[in-house]
């Protein structure tokens, strides 16, 4: 973005539409309040006073998928839960992103058995994987920063 003062000294910002929209999207992401297991506690920890995720424009966790655009899959997804998860994803309005938080959501983790889906990417498309069992709040925040970088690189021709 560049500030231009050509027109009589008025403050004006010139930028591309792409950049402006991506900047707005990263600055106010609304994650869905959706905790599954152990990682949800660390996700709560990331929002609480000590780590304070609202520094990055996401203090509002929305309980309704209709009002959110970021799904943090925090914990192990069981085969019984997977249809619910997909339904929640389908209810989210576009644009929407998914962060797979923790080993279980990323690849099944230590639970390689009949009950657990081996990676939530079998159900919903995942943008960022965060490793750890459970990941520290810093790791989650780093994962979300990585997602911000990804969103900033999105192209206008892909939106259609």
């Amino acid at each position: 973005m560049g500030v231009s003062r050509k027109l009589g000294g008025l403050g004006a910002v010139t930028t591309t539409l792409e950049q402006a929209v991506n900047w707005a999207r990263t600055g106010a992401m609304w994650p869905m309040l959706f905790g599954l297991a152990c990682c949800a506690i660390e996700m709560m920890g990331a929002q609480a006073a000590h780590y304070d995720m609202s520094r990055f424009g996401m203090e509002l966790m929305r309980a309704s998928p209709r009002q959110s655009d970021l799904m943090i899959v925090a914990g192990r997804v069981t085969r019984k839960m997977s249809p619910v998860l997909r339904q929640l994803y389908d209810q989210m309005p576009s644009p929407k992103w998914v962060v797979a938080m923790g080993d279980c959501a990323s690849c099944g983790g230590i639970f390689n058995n009949y009950a657990i889906v081996q990676g939530v990417d079998e159900i919903v498309p995942v943008d960022v994987y965060v490793a750890g069992c459970p990941p520290r709040p810093e790791q989650l925040i780093h994962g979300i920063m990585t997602l911000h970088e990804k969103v900033k690189g999105e192209k206008i021709k892909d939106w259609a």
Binding site: R86, G108, N112, N113, Y114, D121, E122, V124, P125
Partner: peptide, 25 residues
């Protein structure tokens, strides 16, 4: 009753398993 174990991806079998893994659209 089987444990329902899925093969774990290592570097030597990554592509083989990745090709069969169902990814969501």
């Amino acid at each position: 009753y089987p444990l329902g174990y899925e093969t774990v991806q290592f570097s030597f079998n990554w592509q083989e398993i990745d090709a069969k893994k169902p990814y969501a659209k």
